[in-house]
Nucleic acid binder design. Structure first.
Lengths: 257, 257
DNA sequence: CGCAGACTTGAAGATTATCAACCACCGTGG
DNA sequence: CCACGGTGGTTGATAATCTTCAAGTCTGCG
């Protein structure tokens, strides 16, 4: 009964409602105890909305926020002092961004690529809530570990794979990640990225990405034209470049007892 | 008084003693409440010791362990199916390794480079202890975030910096990390890595690393010979390549109330 | 219509890899 | 004591990959 009242309370008060729905939706599927719902309250979640190509958090910012993407494409990157930039990842629905090492300015930036809806909360508040919600602690830890795993894949890409394999790998990764929430069909997916953005993510020039995409198209593997990535022969592509989506994790989060 | 007894209990029982000392040593400097010390007990820490070049955890392993390096150099890497490998990081004293996304095989391997002493514990046990030790939760989260920050730097290195800058960057990074625990002097530090290992970390060939090191030496910037990295003109080097150690974080962990 | 941003293509140049030696060091066993 | 093998380091010549520069084209949009 108390649980029911509490749930109602949280559902109706503030933005926590949306976050709660998010946590309870498949494939996350959290089941909260009353204490845990209480623990979520002080998070003081802001459910924000940004237009495309807006900087949400800039490297050097001291205030530490934690973000969970609810919908849309984001882009986390690092600016170099020579004007170049390295895109670290394109966070999608369900991805957690912004967990940085203790006090100090954040080391990377977050921007929207498309219109996005995003949950923002204070990093310290989340830390404090850990003691009261083991589920939240597990969720955040798993999510951070998954993000880390993705970055490791990108490092492997940049360090030890040539342009063709590297590009195909990123396209297959985005496909696999999007399909978790049903945002990718059998044929392919809508991709809002420019060739320059792909280049900054892959550690190539936009020109070379262009040629590489043409290669992939001419080999009847993938075609990326006018905002849509179409897989022409996914099995062959996966086999050719040795893609293994294991690194993305299963996203099965245990609910509290 | 109870605290005193508990402390004694933990200190004398099992390997937790060493971990406790580790947590309490500068620059970590944890101050534990009695409850927190209790929470540490079920971690069942194993303080292990490995000879050089031993595989500690292999990619594909299902059992999930969490490692904290106590001394020595380790090496976390990912093997590719074409025989290449990408070294993700060289974890040093204080570094946390092995937090992977929920159930499923680990995606990277951990090996010793030198003789190392290392704490091993079950990932699930750590997760469970979070509820009882907010400090531990903060420590692990901060540590994972820091590791992530380091990997991001390596990605930036591989993606957007040339061989010279990249190599110098890694050497300066290792220097900064070692100096946290006083393992690097003004002149430089002992480095057990081979040029092949550097190459696998930097995404280059060993031959090119060799030439790059020669370049750095001939420009009177750094010299890496017979296991010692000697900085010939650190200020100039830092300035030339635009090194900013911000990404390593401050490693200031708040103690519990 | 004209403009701006993204995409495309060619030619030339820089960076990095590959191939093939050779050297230096070190522990081992005769 | 020295020959021996193995690992890691060094160097040169050549080739592949990727970048840079320069000049288009295409498309959406005021």
């Amino acid at each position: 009964m108390i649980l029911r009242i509490l749930q109602k309370w949280i559902m109706t008060s503030t933005q926590n409602q949306t976050l709660l729905q998010f946590f309870q939706s498949p494939p996350i599927g959290a089941i909260f105890t009353s204490e845990e719902m209480e623990a979520l309250r002080p998070l003081n979640v802001a459910a924000k909305h940004y237009p495309p190509h807006t900087v949400i958090s800039h490297q050097g910012d001291v205030e530490q926020r934690l973000f969970i993407i609810n919908s849309g494409w984001a882009c986390s990157y690092r600016d170099l002092n020579n004007g170049d930039r390295q895109i670290i990842d394109f966070p999608l629905k369900g991805d957690v961004v912004g967990v940085v090492a203790s006090p100090g300015p954040s080391t990377d930036s977050l921007a929207s690529t498309t219109e996005i809806s995003i949950f923002e909360m204070s990093r310290t508040a989340v830390g404090k809530a850990f003691g009261r919600s083991p589920w939240l602690a597990q969720f955040i830890l798993s999510a951070v570990a998954r993000q880390s795993s993705i970055v490791i894949e990108h490092l492997t890409n940049a360090g030890r794979r040539n342009a063709l394999v590297r590009t195909a790998h990123l396209l297959l990764e985005m496909d696999a990640r999007l399909s978790t929430f049903g945002e990718s069909t059998q044929q392919g997916f809508d991709c809002p990225l420019t060739q320059q953005e792909l280049a900054d993510a892959l550690g190539l020039t936009a020109i070379h990405v262009n040629r590489t995409l043409r290669d992939l198209r001419e080999h009847n593997l993938v075609s990326f034209r006018s905002g849509f990535v179409e897989f022409l022969d996914k099995p062959r592509l996966i086999n050719m470049i040795g893609f293994d989506k294991e690194f993305l994790g299963f996203r099965v989060f245990s609910s509290s007892p």
